[in-house]
């Protein structure tokens, strides 16, 4: 883009009231909504505030909550579950499948068999389904006795005994990730599909004339074109998944045992079941810190790649 930027030194001064006017509404919301509660959490995390003592307040106990957290065996697993299963595996599956789905939906074959419009419309169905509804449905589909998935697997002769997807240690994470992926895949696939459509067809044609096979075209033309979209979606999916409470809580409540407990559910369990608001806030502060650190990487990336003009 050209560098014929409007502002000159004079322009900046002259437009200050305008800038303030345009930004103040957004900031009013953001400060009240994000900054104030974060400071509140920070303060509470240094106290032993209990749920039943909200009225009386807590005592200052310094960094005791953080010490307990760092040394807790349970918390190490919570971190592992959140970072590895929920975020790394969950996001990777979503990106790979989203990419595959976008390529499939962009294929000329669908055009030819008149499947293009219908497939794009149906792609939106999972996205339009609220998480609570998605979980209700999937819990039934995955049910060992009554669920259609087990009936299908047994009918096809793939398994002999029904699989208890949400209770066997070997299956519970894959099942959870399936549910989350199902619900969130459309947004990812749609974004990639949109990016694919902006790929100039001459590029592909040129590659084809040069003798590039299908994989080579994918590797050297399509993927490089999609790279910014892939990176942005990876980063954003990470925020959305890492922070999400609803999926894990309503599907397994962190069980069996604490096998699928993640940071968001830990915050809830500690605050509202064990009644330890102070400790829970400390978990929340760690959670926010991790994400803000991650967010910095994300900002660096979009500052360099996406929004060069803005930053």
């Amino acid at each position: 883009m050209s560098s014929t930027a409007i502002p000159t030194a004079r322009g900046i001064r002259g437009e200050r009231p305008f800038i303030v006017f345009m930004l103040v509404p957004a900031f009013f919301f953001l400060i009240m909504f994000y900054v104030y509660p974060t400071l509140f959490n920070l303060e509470v995390s240094f106290t032993d505030l209990s749920l039943f003592g909200l009225r009386q307040g807590g005592e200052w106990i310094g960094i005791a909550n953080y010490v307990e957290l760092v040394t807790s065996k349970d918390f190490h697993r919570v971190i592992f579950n959140t970072v590895f299963w929920l975020t790394v595996v969950g996001v990777a599956v979503r990106i790979v499948l989203g990419l595959g789905l976008a390529l499939l939906l962009d294929s000329k074959v669908l055009d030819k068999y008149r499947l293009k419009t219908i497939s794009r419309v149906l792609l939106l169905v999972p996205w339009a389904t609220p998480p609570i509804v998605a979980i209700v449905s999937w819990r039934w589909l995955l049910n060992p006795q009554l669920g259609d998935i087990n009936k299908l697997l047994i009918g096809l002769g793939i398994v002999e005994q029904p699989i208890a997807f949400l209770s066997e240690a070997a299956w519970v994470w894959p099942a959870l990730i399936t549910i989350i992926t199902w619900n969130t895949l459309p947004l990812v696939a749609l974004t990639f599909l949109a990016a694919l459509q902006s790929l100039p067809s001459e590029l592909l044609e040129a590659a084809e004339i040069d003798g590039a096979g299908r994989w080579q075209r994918l590797r050297y033309v399509i993927l490089p074109h999609l790279k910014p979209a892939i990176i942005v979606m990876t980063l954003m999916s990470t925020f959305w998944t890492f922070n999400n409470f609803v999926y894990v809580w309503l599907t397994t409540a962190g069980g069996p045992g604490l096998y699928t407990n993640v940071m968001a559910t830990e915050v809830y369990i500690k605050a509202f079941i064990d009644g330890r608001m102070g400790y829970s806030s400390a978990v929340g502060v760690v959670m926010a810190t991790l994400m803000v650190a991650f967010g910095m990487i994300y900002l660096r990336f979009i500052a360099q790649r996406e929004f060069k003009e803005v930053f």
Binding site: P37, N243, F245, S281, G284, M287
Partner: peptide
């Protein structure tokens, strides 16, 4: 703002 967990808010 996108990276704040709602549960702590």
């Amino acid at each position: 703002g996108q990276c704040f967990p709602w549960i702590i808010l």
